[in-house]
């Protein structure tokens, strides 16, 4: 654990450096336009002419002015400290000091990223559980039934080739027309994305026992149910957890995509609202929140995995 801290820190540092450097040319046109409005002389001709020039050239010829790219109100690319400030204000700032915050009202503010993350988390967890259950059941069916083995897998693969961004609004609209709203449509989309890695991993896991182990079961006159419960399922546990880590991340993506057309809260809704109003800092803050959520969920699955494998007599 401790040995991995330093390499991770170095990578984070490298990302921050690249991020700050990239923000200057990304934001330079807007910076120059604003400086011009303020009466400053800038190199590169009129705004229309500047569109024809390369961003790097604009930075090189206007070195002093271009540095304002790190402190714009609505930058094309916000810099890390802007995102960090926004993240702080829309979580702790909002809840502790805000008029509608937790400290004042006893409820989480509807403008707070904590509320939105909670909405997303709920749908993600429900979708993940549905997807995992469906994936495990399908895998059991595939392993025990030849017809399912031949038929289900191709459809499962095809299901994942349909772009979820195109499918999600349709699922939301169709479910809405039969009166299903709120968390469930999002959970369905999230389950749709998360069942697939579970099916693939569990089919491999359930088939992990070799010929000898199956023969051995046969010599004890064990039925299909006994072989499943006492051999196939325990043998598939390491495969299951590998799949669950992929599935939980996919479930989060599914929920966020499902929140885009609904606009009733959630990190997805926050991101889309931010893009409507050009609030790039808000988008990035929601994005970072989603990343933190994903890391937490994957970490939780990893912790469960270690506990389970230790309880199953793991050597490590």
């Amino acid at each position: 654990m401790r040995r991995s801290v330093l390499p991770v820190l170095w990578v984070v540092l490298a990302i921050l450096v690249v991020w700050y450097v990239a923000a200057i040319p990304m934001n330079v046109r807007e910076v120059l336009t604003q400086a011009e409005r303020g009466g400053a002389q800038v190199w590169g001709g009129t705004a229309a002419e500047r569109q024809e020039r390369s961003a790097l050239a604009l930075v090189a010829r206007n070195p002093g002015v271009a540095m304002a790219g790190w402190s714009q109100e609505r930058p094309r690319l916000p810099v890390p400290h802007q995102v960090a400030v926004e993240l702080w204000q829309s979580t702790v700032g909002e809840e502790v000091f805000g008029r509608r915050g937790f400290v004042q009202t006893g409820e989480f503010s509807n403008r707070s990223l904590i509320t939105h993350a909670g909405i997303t988390l709920g749908a993600t967890v429900v979708g993940f559980l549905i997807g995992t259950a469906a994936g495990v059941l399908l895998a059991i069916g595939i392993v025990h039934n030849r017809a399912m083995d031949m038929s289900v897998m191709p459809w499962a693969v095809i299901s994942q080739t349909v772009p979820i961004v195109a499918l999600a609004p349709m699922i939301v609209v169709v479910l809405n027309s039969v009166g299903v709203q709120g968390l469930l449509p999002k959970a369905v989309i999230s389950a749709y994305l998360s069942f697939f890695p579970v099916v693939v991993g569990m089919v491999k896991g359930l088939r992990a026992p070799d010929r000898m182990q199956l023969d051995q079961m046969h010599t004890w006159n064990a039925g299909t149910g006994d072989t499943l419960r006492k051999l196939r399922l325990p043998a598939s546990v390491p495969y299951l957890f590998a799949s669950l880590k992929v599935a939980i991340a996919a479930a989060l993506v599914g929920t966020i995509v499902g929140e885009l057309p609904v606009q009733r809260g959630g990190l997805g809704a926050r991101m889309l609202a931010g893009s409507y109003y050009g609030q790039t800092v808000q988008i990035w803050a929601a994005l970072l929140m989603a990343a933190v959520l994903a890391a937490g969920l994957v970490g939780l699955v990893g912790w469960l995995e270690r506990r389970t494998l230790r309880a199953m007599g793991g050597a490590a």
């Binding site: 000898m212 023969d215 051995q216 004890w220 006159n221 006492k230 199953m312 007599g313």
Partner: peptide
Amino acid sequence: YGYVFQAAGLYPWRTIAGNIRLPLEIM
């Protein structure tokens, strides 16, 4: 009959006693 294979074929997730108990559970 009881059948002993070339590999011991013990389940790593069961203790030795648990492995010996396995056929007894099934039966």
